[in-house]
Design a protein around this nucleic acid. Structure first.
Lengths: 231, 231
DNA sequence: TCCTGTGAATTCGTTCACAGCC
DNA sequence: GGCTGTGAACGAATTCACAGGA
């Protein structure tokens, strides 16, 4: 354990472990084995041990991990011991719901500003906070020391808005807009795309229907003439 | 091209390609090379070619892909040529926003029911649709032939609700609840977790701050005594 | 004996590089 | 000449399997 490069896939699982651990702590559990944590997090136990080993040797052989201690270490590693100021850009349906959603504050993500360009929305109060005009983004980002932006604008303007956010000093973007964004090196970007998720489910759902009809013997040759020759 | 097993990672990218292609079609583009599509989708062009080759040989060497034709093939592969009935379970802030969000219908995902257990919410009209009681889930799923459920309930009840949805005949779940769900084989599950995404950004954000201070020479030894020996 | 921590083996995904066709 | 389709090379992530400490 000397290198400090945690694989991305591993980083993405830490919050899941953390949540499971917090649940356990609340239920009064003090010690947990990789097997038990694996069960709670829905992954394989070897993966847990490997992931945790990237953080350091925090377990005890023959015993397991101390729940509180592990919570502390993972939180620290994830940067959750400090709090981060965020802004929500675009207060349409989704932006509004995100603003109202309590789940962010819970883990140290303070919503420091709501921004929009629509004059109808600017000035409106949402979740006890006034919507401000996006034109003031530079000032607001600086004043509030915002580093993370939550983007809930229409896809068509998402890239422009992002460029301006980055110019204003934002260095992480969580994108809910249905658009592929490009950001300069050094800026982190994650995407949540609701309709893409549904389309992925649709793919597997269709497979099931197809298999089902094969089993039932009711499978039909597809009408589409250009299907690849074999199944 | 005879096998029909498309890698999961590849399936997850098809909707992204599809969106880029639809944009292009709207702008009047008829033909696209893997390079151009790669650019629009934000991936490497070899990946595009490999992904598309899983669907069949739909390109023309020396020319590229026919945009309309590719849209058709990807849509078909993703099962978007039929439409899927979905239900939203839990109409709190997020559920409501999802119900109002137009982006689902756009690609053939019809919201056929809104369900909740709160008597205060049952009967309420959201996006022109009446909220029904979750107790009627079996009847509703059958009547509307719903196969996909969008779960926006509190984490604590998510597993119970899921179990009941599956008993009622649901075979795909898009989970927005902050909980690890277990589903039987044959049921598809995807998760969207807002606070996990922020935590991942936080991790990388923290790294940047740390590197920054190293560059500036203002790095400090961490106070935490159990840090691994080296950075 | 129990459970962690980790090399080794394996699987999965990406990228390279070029033959083959337009 | 240009671009697809795909084996082969590479790299990342997962899982195995077990040595070693409590």
């Amino acid at each position: 354990m000397t290198t400090r490069q945690i694989p991305e896939a591993s980083v993405a699982r830490l919050p899941v472990y953390l949540r499971a651990l917090v649940d356990m702590a609340e239920r009064g559990t003090h010690t947990v084995s990789s097997d038990a944590l694996a069960e709670a997090a829905g992954v394989n136990s070897a993966k847990i041990r490997k992931d945790l080993s990237y953080l350091g040797s925090y377990g005890t052989r023959g015993v397991g991990y101390d729940v509180e201690y592990l919570i502390h270490q993972i939180s620290r590693e994830l940067g959750l011991t400090q709090d981060w100021a965020t802004c929500i850009v675009g207060v349409g349906n989704l932006g509004k719901a995100l603003a109202d959603y309590g789940g962010f504050a819970e883990r140290g993500f303070r919503i420091a500003a709501l921004l929009d360009v629509s004059l109808g929305k600017v000035g409106e109060m949402i979740a006890g906070m006034e919507v401000q005009h996006f034109d003031d983004v530079e000032r607001i980002v600086k004043e509030e020391e915002i580093s993370i932006a939550i983007l809930a604008v229409p896809g068509a303007v998402a890239q422009d808005v992002t460029d301006r956010l980055i110019t204003a000093g934002i260095s992480s973007v969580l994108n809910f807009a249905p658009a592929v964004l490009t950001v300069p090196e050094g800026v982190s970007l994650r995407k949540v795309d609701l309709s893409i998720e549904l389309q992925i489910l649709s793919f597997y759902e269709q497979r099931k229907v197809a298999e089902e009809s094969v089993r039932r013997g009711t499978a039909r040759r597809r009408l589409d003439a250009v299907d690849p020759p074999l199944a």
